[in-house]
Design a protein around this nucleic acid. Structure first.
Lengths: 223, 223
DNA sequence: CGGCGGTTCAAACGAACGTTTGAATGCTAG
DNA sequence: CTAGCATTCAAACGTTCGTTTGAACCGCCG
């Protein structure tokens, strides 16, 4: 509990979390073994069970370390918007949501890029405990942003809005997870892939247009 | 090679493929064991190695069974469009691409729904051999649709189009993979989730608006 | 200086992994 | 009827899995 304790006290934990972040991203949870993980982290095999209790508890810790602050930042950004001017543009709300996560992609040094891709692929992970965890961590943010969008688009049928939000999260999560897939389409070098500012502009324009698209007849009838 | 051979000759293969489709979707490739898989399929443990050679070869077979016909159907749909009228609307091109996959989601009985979700989560799978397989299976379709969109949107910078196509595939794959996540946003019952017609209308409207959105200043400068 | 909590370590636990084997099975062709 | 072939089967292969154990190590406080 003195000088030395302050730094290395959690150094092993941090090294484990960083290694887990990268390996989970690369091979999935079930595809990553404790032996790979502890080996990459440079710690003893038993360290994970000592510090976290189990592999499942480690998974939760990996998500909480980044997701809690990120969602807090999203809510703060929305707070700032709402406290300023009255009528919120849909695109401003979208930027409040995606900005924080895209900035994380840029942070390759701090491991944010690994986590971004991990998070992106986790959205499509159907394993029950993980879905439950993600749902729990996201519920408050989801509710706030849904309310904000409902207010910004009062004429949109609620059900249509739900679907369009679903599409938006899909686009974002895929963008986070598979930035490299652009090459499959382009067939060329990446260039500015990690310029968060530019990517946010591109994505915000795309999403805002989709979100505020005119209603089709069939859809309007179903509502 | 006579009567009996026609049906049950490949019945074991089919049962394995169906079980693999569902289990890979639920637990991923590395998370699915041969023992679960053969047990669910109701076949002997050795059957997979006998009929397919290895687990990896089974994975490839699972994708080829559905993806080859689906991409052929996409190309056929685009052919039909191009042979008819000259100027193609972007939304028509989009529908040619997404229609076939959304119709597969509806086919819960034939296992198409399982495969849809498997496919959706595979887009964010970074494992090298799988990315290579997917890339190989999709390359021709990607090239054709990219060319069609370039022709339909001649004024759009090539690089911006690449990104918007990336966003589109992301939205589609997420929609296929995580149809249940709508509940996270809506917090209510699913209702018409599997009405492919309605879903295609919603998605096509969203994507067409995003694809043809006005260019932002920053983005235009970068191009 | 002695020992005490927090941490690391090598070693081992039983269970489950993908794959292989060689004998049994059942239909087909001669 | 029988020889032959594709398929199925139970059993075992060696390896790796997540977790547990008990001893060693360390800097700090009494």
């Amino acid at each position: 509990m003195t000088l030395r304790a302050v730094k290395p006290q959690h150094e092993t934990r941090t090294r484990i979390l960083d290694a887990a972040e990268e390996l989970f991203m690369l091979h999935g949870f079930e595809g990553t073994s404790m032996r790979q993980l502890t080996s990459k982290a440079g710690v003893n095999l038993a360290a994970v069970n000592y510090h976290f209790g189990s592999k499942d508890a480690l998974i939760e810790a990996v998500f909480r370390r980044r997701l809690d602050p990120m969602n807090a930042a999203r809510l703060a950004a929305l707070d700032a918007l709402e406290s300023a001017g009255r009528p919120l543009a849909p695109e401003a709300i979208i930027r409040a949501f995606i900005g924080e996560s895209l900035r994380m992609v840029e942070d390759a040094k701090g491991g944010g890029r690994n986590f971004s891709r991990l998070l992106g692929r986790t959205y499509t992970e159907p394993a029950k405990p993980i879905r439950a965890l993600i749902g729990q961590l996201y519920a408050p943010v989801m509710a706030r942003f849904k309310a904000a969008l409902e207010q910004a688009l009062p004429q949109m049928p609620k059900e249509e809005l739900v679907w369009r939000m679903h599409f938006m999260f899909g686009t974002l999560s895929y963008t986070l997870a598979a930035t490299d897939t652009v090459q499959l389409i382009a067939g060329c070098k990446p260039e500015d892939r990690y310029d968060a500012r530019l990517l946010e502009d591109r994505l915000a324009a795309f999403l805002a247009a989709g979100l505020t698209a005119a209603l089709k007849n069939a859809v309007r009838k179903a509502a």
